[in-house]
Every structure is written in C-alpha cells, then in structure tokens.
Simulated assay, not measured.
Amino acid sequence: MRIWFIGAYGIVSTTAMAGGKLIEQGRIDTTGLVSSLPQFEGIEKYAPLNFEFGGHEVRKADNAYVAALQHWEQNRHFEKEHLEEVRSELEQIRASRGTAINCGSGVQALGELDILENEKKTLAEIVEQLEKDLKSFADDDTVVINSASTEPLLNYSEKYHGSLDGFEEMIENDVKEHASASILYAYVALKNRIPYGNFTPSAGSSIPALKELAIEKKVPHAGNDGKTGETLVKTTLAPMFAYRNLKVLGWMSYNILGDLDGLVLSHRENKESKVISKDKVLEKIYGYSPFSITQIEYFPSLVDNKTAFDFIHFQGFMGTQMKFYFIWDAIDAIVAAPLTIDIARFLLFAKKKGLYGVIKEMGFFFKSPMDTNNVNTHSQFVELVEWFRENI
C-alpha cells in the first residue's frame, strides 16, 4: 500500500516510514500495530504490510532519511541501527513542497520553510499543485494521512464550509481568510477518491462541505486528532468511575512536551484546538462536565517525551471525597507512528469493501472522532472489531 503523509518530514511520519519498512523486511515485529491483533485477521488481504511512502512538507530537508536522522539525533527514540537498515529506502523519499496557509505563527517555529513559492499562489493554484503532486504518486492502494502540526481554529464560514458548492466558490474566488492547509489537503485527497485520515486536531475533512464531497466521490475518511497518550489513558480510565457510579468532581491534566510539536503548541492560536480536543472527552463520557483544567506547556529538554500529570477528585459512597493520580510518560512518535499505519490500513480496507463517508467506527483512534460522541476506549474497541468482522 501507499501512504502519503502531510507533514512528511515530521517525527511521527518519519518514524512510521522507518518502522513500516522494517516490518516489511521482517527486521521488527508488529508490536504497537492495532491492525495486527488477532481480532483483525484477514486485513492483510486488503492492506498488506508493504509500503511506499510520499508526502507534502513545508520544511527544508533533502529526503526522509535526513529528516529522520535529525529527529533521531535529538531524541534517540529507537536503536540507530534500525534507521541505518532502511537508510537507502528513506533516502529515496523526497517530499513535495506543501502549503502552510493560515497555519498560524507556530509554524514558523519549525525552522527554515520551503513555502514561499506556494504562498504567493491563489487558492486555485495551490490546489492544482497539491493535486498534481498527489496524483503523481497515488494509485488505487493509496491513503492520505495528515500528521502535520496543529493549525489554529478554522475561521469557519457557513457560506464557504457548509456546502461543497460554497467550498469550491471559496477556492475559485480566492477567499484565503476562510481557507487552511488541512482543508485544502483533505479536499484534494477526497476529490481524487483517495481515503483521508486526519491525525491532527485541525479541521481537515470534518467540515460539512468535505463530508459532502466524500459521499459524492464514495471515499472513506476518518479523524480527528490521534489518541496516543494522556487522552488515551483518560478515556480508558474515566469509564471506570462511571461503571462504579462514582462522581468525578474535577479532573486536572497538565501536559509538558518538547520537540517541534511542543514548540508549535507554545503558540496560543495553535494550542487552542488541541486543548479543546483533549478537554471535551469527559463530558461525552459522563454526560456532565466536571471541573476541568487542561494545560499544555512547552518543555524543551523533554524533546519527544510527552509527560502528563493527572489529578482526579471524585466522590463516593456517603459523600466521601477521594483522589486518584497518574503520570503518563511516553515517547510520542513511538506511540503515534504505528497508529498512522493502522488508520491507513483500515481506511484502505474500507475503500476496498465499498464503504465511504465518515468511518465513525474508527473513532477508537481519535480524541475527537467524527459523527459520534463515543470516546470510551473500551466500547470504541468493541465497535471497531464488530465493524471489521461484519465487513471482512
């Protein structure tokens, strides 16, 4: 299968590329891949574990190996020998110049950018170039995964985002103030009948216009915001209190992270959509809103280690108040990268089974799954398994 990454030189994408090639060559096992669990036996017929990678990127780097090496030198997040084992394959992956339109001031923190030429173009010209790049790579086994940095909240317009006609009018009339990179990438993918997975909290394919396009083109899509760390624990642990009829009075989540993700999220406008995505899950699980504090802070020396400190204040029998604490400390790219491969495999499976529109049963992978309020990890996993077994 072929995976086209938006944000191709990021640490998640390059880790997925390296890991995918290592799996293909039998050098590592499939630990971390949900799609390799026994419950999903048979998926390999539709989405085999062999890969070609490409993508769009806004940062300058010679190829995916150079980008991966830069990340490795900062993080040492896997054995160096693994990177060298797939060096020749990664050196052949050269990302196309992308767009960072309306991606906020945080994107400037990524370093030297290669976007000036594209940003001078009209929306129609940007879309034309993105489409040309993608079509030069894509075949019937291609999936687009957005793993780029988080954008600011979309400047939503019912006129331009509420219908496909309005969206295409926005492009035709070059109404840039209502555009963003993620919705343009999603538009190009869906327009060309290529499944799209949004691993970010950015708008992506979640607006009505693009949901309409996915139905019209009969293409599957899923998102938003990969559930990899503190929110994964939160949505797994939070149901326990509900099952035991314990009332959660308050939940504090304090997240610290470094690397480029943390640097981008240190900018308020880029952080806002991420906080919203993490903060809404409690209300969806409990049906009420406990007092909640969700903070995300940049901590440079942590690089790709994301550490979260959570404090839960809850009430039990006879009104007695009690406390629960946990700390999550994980290397973000290592927990995130395999999920991007999983999402691509399930979307390709959906396409080959003739399924289209929002694949809400893939909500297991996301903090803010589209078209469903179920964020309970336990029942989400059951939904995913049942959906797969019904369609295999």
Results as ranks from 00 to 15, higher is better:
A238S: 08
A242G: 07
Y243N: 10
Y243E: 09
R244P: 04
N245K: 13
K247Q: 05
L249M: 05
L249C: 03
L249I: 08
G250T: 08
M252Y: 12
M252H: 12
Y254T: 12
N255M: 11
G258Y: 00
D259F: 05
G262F: 00
L263K: 12
L263E: 02
V264R: 02
S266G: 05
H267V: 13
H267F: 13
H267M: 08
R268S: 11
E269H: 09
N270C: 08
N270R: 01
K271D: 08
E272F: 10
S273Q: 15
V275I: 11
I276T: 10
S277E: 06
D279I: 12
K280F: 09
K280D: 10
V281L: 04
L282E: 00
E283K: 07
I285C: 04
G287W: 08
P290A: 01
F291V: 14
S292N: 14
I293Y: 13
I293K: 15
Q295C: 11
Q295N: 14
Q295E: 11
E297L: 10
Y298C: 02
P300H: 03
P300T: 06
S301V: 01
V303Q: 03
V303M: 02
D304Q: 02
D304K: 03
K306S: 10
T307Y: 01
F309G: 00
F311T: 12
F311I: 14
I312P: 04
H313I: 15
H313E: 11
H313P: 07
H313Y: 12
F314T: 01
Q315Y: 07
F317W: 11
F317G: 09
M318H: 11
G319I: 00
T320W: 11
Q321A: 10
M322G: 07
K323E: 13
K323T: 12
F324K: 05
I327H: 03
I327P: 02
I327Y: 00
W328G: 13
W328F: 13
W328K: 15
W328C: 13
D329K: 11
D329V: 07
A330I: 13
